[in-house]
Amino acid sequence: MRKASRLFEIIQILRLARRPVTGAEIAGQLEVTVRSIYRDIAALQAMRVPIEGERGIGYILRPGFTLPPLMLSIEETEAIVLSLALLERTGDTGLKQAAKQVNRKIAAAVPEPLARIFSDNALHAWGTAAPAPEAIDLALVRRSIRDEQKLALDYRDELGRATERTIRPIALIYYSATANIVAWCELRQAIRNFRADRVEHCEPVEEFFSGEGEKLRQLWVEGWQTGSGAAG
């Protein structure tokens, strides 16, 4: 998680808390070290965010501090809630957990009786849910797309042939059965699609393709018209 996002999340955690929250609890929620949280809280306090407390005891956000509201209409808010419900049908466990957190934040921010609509699950998305892939964390793929970082895959194609690939991930497509990673494959020297459920191992490579992501996505889109898209 980038520092800017982490600072925002710390404010949200403290804003929604009903008691002092320790650095260890915040670190556990954000999956970072406690030392990082201490540095982040010091940075927020330097920005005059009214956080009080100390290490080992816990932190609180003084009443009256709010982030700028999005000013969403009821219909816009309901659209977001229903979209979050649709994430339950993906196999991305990280996004499903994030969707639950967003729902809680929306319910905490809106007035009654609108909050009851969200807490009572009045809006539903129905259908088959895709299983989470066993050998790859889709949160890692999404992070690699954002950071333009290469991934190393052990991959088995539809015929059962095993290969090792280094890819430059540029997009992630969610289908009802699985998720597809769209990437530039350094082995094939072309855009390829990789089914997440056929990945047998995945880890980041300490190499980046900074500044290339948008151009590769344009190349991918151009392939839609020519029909040049191909499986891994």
Rank of each mutant, 00 (worst) to 15 (best):
A109C: 08
L70Y: 13
A79D: 07
A115F: 04
P68W: 10
T90V: 05
L82V: 15
V102R: 01
A46V: 09
S36E: 08
A115E: 01
A27Q: 06
L30G: 03
M47L: 13
K100A: 14
L67E: 10
A109H: 03
R55G: 00
L95C: 03
L67V: 07
I51E: 04
Q101T: 06
S73W: 09
I57Y: 09
T66H: 14
E88S: 08
G56D: 06
G53Q: 06
I51A: 04
G28S: 12
I26V: 07
E54T: 15
Y59C: 02
L30N: 06
Q29R: 15
P111R: 03
Q45E: 14
P63Y: 12
T66I: 08
A107N: 02
L95E: 00
V81I: 15
I41A: 09
I106Y: 05
E88V: 02
K105W: 08
P111N: 06
P68H: 06
L95M: 12
A115H: 05
R35G: 13
P113E: 11
E54Q: 15
I80S: 01
T33I: 03
E75D: 12
L82M: 14
K96M: 04
R48T: 14
E78C: 05
L87F: 13
M71H: 13
R48P: 00
M47T: 03
L61W: 04
R35N: 14
P69C: 06
L70D: 11
R104P: 02
P69L: 07
S83V: 01
L44A: 11
L95R: 08
L72V: 05
A107F: 00
I51L: 09
L67W: 10
L30S: 09
Y38R: 07
S73Y: 07
V32K: 00
I51C: 09
L86P: 00
A27G: 12
R89S: 05
L70A: 15
G28I: 05
D40T: 01
G56Q: 08
K100Q: 11
Q45P: 03
E112V: 11
F65E: 09
M47A: 14
L44M: 13
A108N: 14
L44W: 12
L70W: 14
F65P: 06
E25G: 10
E54V: 11
R89K: 15
I60Q: 07
E31Q: 12
L72R: 08
S36P: 01
I41R: 01
A42Q: 11
E54W: 11
L84F: 04
E112R: 15
I80Y: 01
A42C: 00
D92N: 11
E75N: 08
V32A: 06
P113F: 07
P50V: 07
E112C: 07
L114A: 13
I41P: 03
L72E: 09
A108P: 04
P63H: 12
E78F: 10
D92W: 06
K105L: 10
A43R: 01
G91K: 04
R48W: 07
A99I: 00
P69M: 07
M47W: 06
I37H: 02
I60P: 00
K105I: 07
E52Y: 08
V102A: 06
R48G: 08
P69K: 06
A115V: 05
M47S: 12
R104E: 04
R48E: 15
G94V: 04
V49W: 02
